[in-house]
Design a protein around this nucleic acid. Structure first.
Lengths: 234, 234
DNA sequence: CTATGATTCAAACGAACGTATGAATCATAG
DNA sequence: CTATGATTCATACGTTCGTTTGAATCATAG
């Protein structure tokens, strides 16, 4: 067989790059940092991946290909069980965001580290990686969009797309989480250990996402009239 | 008077840096790009600001000092008018996030460009700028946290902090908006012009945020029991 | 054992980076 | 008009960047 030494090297590079890209960003991480911490030669990245950009793409591909399949599998199962009936919004949200967060519990699939890298990258201005993600996983987004359209037939499609977008943002921050949260508060929220925090994050986030997804529709007028509706709904 | 030529130079550098930091990130933007596009000498940044890091801090300080005052002023007015009674959550959310989005309509205060830079920076791993923001504006966050605690006395404080955090994330994505949204959908949401989109964004976001903020509390158990509650509440 | 292709290695490349320097140029006060 | 301090300028410094090269080393097939 070919590739005996190389598999270890490739994986070690990917693991290290994933960690450093998360900690310092793409531009802020140098090839020398990666290869040094991975204990491989400087030229190894270019040999195995071709370039720094291709390495970044592979870091994402390794995790997201699996995640996308899991998300679609979860959605397929639910739709098969529901038959003709539309899914509940909570099912769709769980298939998408729940599958993502449950991925964080599996250290072999990148754990929290990769999720935080993902969340940060979505807002980061790295043109090439955003273009890569957009083209490679657009079909997953489309499937979930369509599912939400069917589940919420009375809500304008534009509104659903926007709220899906808002949910992505909330989730991104939820994942980046512990660090950014210190910006909001210096007060110790919970002394619980990491496992516990992760267990509690999913229910917390799901409640928030579903509340936002099913909120009364905006009226596109003065804030006062919106306030009236909100007060009435409460 | 001193500083006649320098005021123009300073402002031109800040404007250009703001735009380029938004487009390519902090690490991805070079001093030579900034000074070249601002039509000033390469040494001008170090002369006027001392270093690239200090320039970045000034880019934020110039906008956020004003924004923080506006936010606190809005909150002060509402609390004065409410007397002893707690504010409505929608008022607090509008004072914080509404003030932010209305800032985007004022091109003299940075417009959408700065807001997108801000949103991206919150998830970006630039240690020094995150630390700067955390220390300089922590008192604003604390004021709004306390206001939410009073407005929602039955909701655990930890839950409020988390939901405030989720709201920040949703807003960050809402602002980054138009670009990232193409990742969610290639389909043309609205052909409306920029002004119109901005007008509609605030009501859309406010509905979502308030829906999330007032969602039923999570129970930290199985997803099934959460689904039951969600169905009952709908 | 030997040949072959895959992988690793040390070293170097040119380019771009942030910063520093000292002279030139400007605006203004006396 | 002249002196002074603020600002601009061209240029260079030392460092680090991503990438390339060609030889050395390895694992395996014949």
């Amino acid at each position: 067989m070919v590739e005996v030494r190389s598999i270890d090297t490739r994986e070690r590079i990917l693991d290290t790059a994933e960690r450093l890209f998360m900690a310092h960003g793409y531009e802020g991480t140098s090839m020398r940092q990666i290869t040094s911490e991975a204990a491989v030669n400087l030229a190894a990245v270019n040999y195995h991946f071709g370039s720094k950009e291709s390495l970044m793409e592979e870091v994402f591909r390794r995790r997201l290909d699996w995640l996308s399949e899991e998300r679609l599998r979860a959605l397929d199962e639910m739709e098969a069980q529901a038959g003709d009936k539309p899914l509940k919004p909570s099912q769709i949200v769980d298939a998408f965001f729940g599958t993502l967060l449950r991925m964080a519990e599996d250290e072999n699939r990148g754990g929290m580290n990769f999720l935080r890298l993902l969340g940060r990258t979505m807002t980061e201005p790295s043109e090439f990686i955003r273009a890569f993600l957009a083209h490679r996983y657009v079909h997953v987004m489309d499937r979930f969009k369509e599912a939400l359209f069917k589940a919420l037939p009375d809500v304008p499609k534009a509104e659903i797309v926007w709220r899906f977008h808002f949910m992505l943002g909330a989730t991104s921050y939820a994942i980046a989480g512990t660090d950014t949260l210190r910006l909001v508060t210096d007060w110790q929220i919970e002394a619980a250990d990491k496992e516990d925090r992760l267990d509690r994050l999913l229910p917390r986030l799901m409640s928030f996402l579903l509340g936002g997804l099913r909120a009364p529709l905006p009226q596109f007028d003065t804030p006062e009239s919106q306030e009236e509706r909100a007060a009435k709904a409460a």
